[in-house]
């Protein structure tokens, strides 16, 4: 039998949104889709997959690499070897993917963000996304794949029928690796280098009295406030918040630069951010050369509008 197996990712009871990309790719592969879930109830659309395989394995143990292999042994025993095994490109997804590849001696391609139309080759980024490689799997599948978040969720097509449910229980789990607990990263001091979302203000903010409103904005956005050097020089924000050549180097998922011109010394500290968004009243500001998105306008007005929209 030929099918695609999705190993879903659940974290602290939440069915991660990244799984949608696994589903999207699986649907593009046009084979029956089997989705493996840990113990528990999740808001999974029953028309996403053809078969839902439920287990009695707790989430924390489910995502351990050896356990997932032991579980897969059973899955294969029951349903045969899948053609493709898809995981999320996340901490645990990639960890499990690599172990599965080694355990079952399978080819593996990670961080896949595209596929040719015949579903024969997969694309993956190389050299900090400067180049993509197209990979073929010469042998007869199966291949293990992790998918880049956001790459395939647009390709989800609902099935015409609800998925069948299967259950696998009684897997003998691994004792070499034991889960102890989840820990929140200690946040003793604000560490802008660890933030996923930075709102960074520059001299364009105008004066000190405007800053508390940015604190509020970062509060509602769940972001961290950082800044350029002049803001630190004026003692408006502490040195630990400074991004740049003589401050901190950051690479958040989103860097929202407001009223920052984009001087070389500042760019040096943030250019590797995944997504840069600039707000500046000067359409010629150099920051726009580095940004992915821009708004030409008054930063303080943008700030107030964002707050208003988020509250409404």
């Amino acid at each position: 039998m030929s099918y695609t197996l999705i190993i879903s990712e659940v974290r602290r009871g939440v069915f991660e949104e990244r799984n949608l990309d696994s589903l999207g790719l699986a649907h593009m592969l046009k084979k029956p889709v089997y989705m493996l879930l840990p113990d528990g109830q999740y808001p999974v659309n029953e028309r996403w997959s053809d078969v839902l395989i439920k287990t009695d394995i707790k989430e924390e143990l489910f995502t351990a690499p050896k356990n997932i292999c032991l579980l897969l042994d059973k899955v294969i025993e029951r349903f045969s070897m899948p053609d493709v095994i898809i995981l999320t490109h996340s901490s645990s997804g990639t960890e499990c993917a690599s172990y599965i590849a080694g355990y079952f001696k399978l080819p593996v391609i990670t961080d896949v963000n595209g596929m040719d139309k015949d579903a024969k080759t997969f694309y993956k980024s190389y050299y900090s996304d400067k180049v993509y490689g197209e990979f073929a799997v010469p042998g007869q599948g199966p291949v293990v794949i992790t998918v880049r978040s956001g790459a395939f969720r647009g390709s989800i097509e609902e099935r015409t029928h609800a998925s069948k449910e299967e259950t696998i229980v009684g897997v003998f789990l691994d004792s070499d690796r034991a889960f102890i607990e989840f820990v929140e990263e200690e946040k003793t001091e604000i560490d802008i280098t660890k933030a996923e979302f930075l709102v960074s203000v520059g001299r364009g903010v105008g004066n000190k009295d405007e800053l508390p409103a940015y604190d509020e904005l970062t509060g509602v956005l769940n972001a961290t406030l950082s800044c350029s050097r002049p803001v630190v020089d004026k003692l408006w924000l502490p040195k630990a918040r400074q991004v740049g050549q003589s401050g901190k180097t950051v690479r958040p998922k989103v860097y929202l630069a407001m009223g920052i011109s984009g001087a070389f010394q500042h760019i040096a500290g943030m250019k590797d951010s995944e997504c840069i968004i600039a707000v500046n009243k000067d359409p010629e500001a150099p920051i726009f050369q580095y940004a992915h998105y821009g708004i030409v306008g008054d930063m303080n007005k943008v700030r107030d509008k964002l707050k208003e929209l988020l509250k409404g």
Partner: peptide, 9 residues
């Protein structure tokens, strides 16, 4: 000093 700023401005 092009690469080092003192902690206390």
């Amino acid at each position: 000093r092009m690469f080092f700023d003192v902690e206390v401005p």
